[in-house]
Amino acid sequence: MTFITDRRSALKLSIAAGVVGLATPQIMVRAAYAQASSGPINNPGLSSFKLGTFKLLTLNDGLVASDAPHTTFGVNQDPADVAALLEENFLPADRAMNSFTPVVVNTGGDVVLFDTGLGARARENGGGLLRERLQAAGYNPEDISVVVLTHFHGDHIGGILEEGQPAFPNARYVVGRTEFDFWTAEDRLSGATENSARAVQASIVPLAEKITFIEDGGEVVPGINGLLAAGHTPGHMIFNIESGGSRIVLTADTANHYVASLRRPDWHVRFDMDKEAGAETRKRVFDMVATDRVPFIGYHMPFPAAGFIEKLEVGYRYVPVSYQLLL
């Protein structure tokens, strides 16, 4: 993989609730920035590789440090067990780091962007770097022809508008019908879903005329198909990408932590709206990835967010890519 490190992207992160402001605390821990006790965090920004005739690019939209991982991962477990699992895997028991990874797939005919990151509201705290990093990779916002939204949480739709206007003015949009119908239902505008639903009303609904709705198995462009992977949200989708006999799977938020969510897929994640369905989907998706021996890209995996899966007696082992995708 090719890495580009931007010195300006050394981040001073924080943990103050609600900076992103596109979802309720029950849905988005990732909206919390504050001064990280570890100080500036180096953030490599870009990684590119080929898949058949397609060119893929992962972009780090920001990093967030947080306390008390057990309040997010393994919320149905004894905190001591969560701490033990993290420590066994050479991670601190009391701190965690989250990253956000939109993906560009250049098919030669289309430039497809998967998810739009945290957006402008996160920039004062070191996030919302998607536009900057697209340009560093040689893409202008006008070059994006298709924007795909895996689901409607704030860290995935936050960058779809820029100063109230479409951030990618020449793009059409592809979203799952189930996700759109869920978040735009009138009764979502109150209760636990209110903040996220209002964000959808403000940023997604105005673009409806340019949206292509897909169901389970639906095509985005030739070589890219969406698969329903519900649990994190009711319409959460993953995407199968194939070109020239090669294949990769974009798993979006199926797993949110490369240890806690993969070594223990049954453990509940705070931000999975249906926690049992989320656990079942994790097992189904990563059984497939492991059995088929294909690489995957996970939105919250450690940057560059690409790896392989080994199935264990209990759970899975995450194997980061090295040079496999360069050959």
Rank of each mutant, 00 (worst) to 15 (best):
Y173D: 03
T184C: 08
F308S: 05
F296A: 09
L86V: 07
G164F: 11
S190W: 11
V146P: 03
A137S: 09
R198L: 14
E179P: 01
Y323S: 14
N195F: 00
Q165V: 14
R131Y: 06
V111Y: 04
I27M: 12
F308T: 02
N195Y: 00
F114D: 03
L86W: 05
V321A: 15
G127W: 00
E313D: 15
Y323V: 13
I41C: 01
F180S: 01
G218E: 02
T233F: 04
E186I: 11
I248Y: 05
V174Q: 06
A306L: 11
P69M: 08
L189F: 15
L250T: 06
A185Y: 10
G45K: 06
F54E: 03
T193W: 11
L227W: 02
F308W: 15
A185R: 13
T281A: 11
A306G: 07
A306W: 01
I297E: 01
S190G: 12
L228P: 02
A122N: 09
S9Q: 15
G164W: 09
G52P: 05
F90S: 15
A137K: 04
T251D: 08
T212I: 12
P265C: 06
F308H: 14
D266P: 02
F152S: 04
Q324H: 13
V29D: 10
A230Y: 01
V82E: 11
H236E: 12
E313Q: 15
G74L: 09
L63S: 10
L129M: 12
L46D: 02
A202G: 11
N170F: 02
F54T: 08
V289M: 10
K275G: 04
R172Y: 10
A260R: 01
E219T: 15
G74C: 10
L56S: 10
S99Y: 00
Y318K: 00
P320I: 05
A31H: 09
P265M: 08
L227H: 07
H236S: 14
R317T: 12
F182R: 02
I238G: 07
L63D: 09
G117L: 05
L129W: 07
I224W: 00
S14N: 13
Q26R: 11
D67K: 13
S48Y: 07
L312I: 09
S261F: 03
G126Q: 10
A80M: 12
V220I: 15
S196L: 14
A68L: 06
R131D: 05
P222F: 03
I241Q: 05
E132R: 11
K210L: 10
G109S: 14
V112N: 07
I204K: 08
N140Y: 11
N98S: 15
G244L: 06
G119E: 06
G52M: 03
R247A: 13
R293H: 13
A197C: 13
I241T: 08
P320M: 08
T212F: 05
T58H: 02
L149Y: 06
D61C: 09
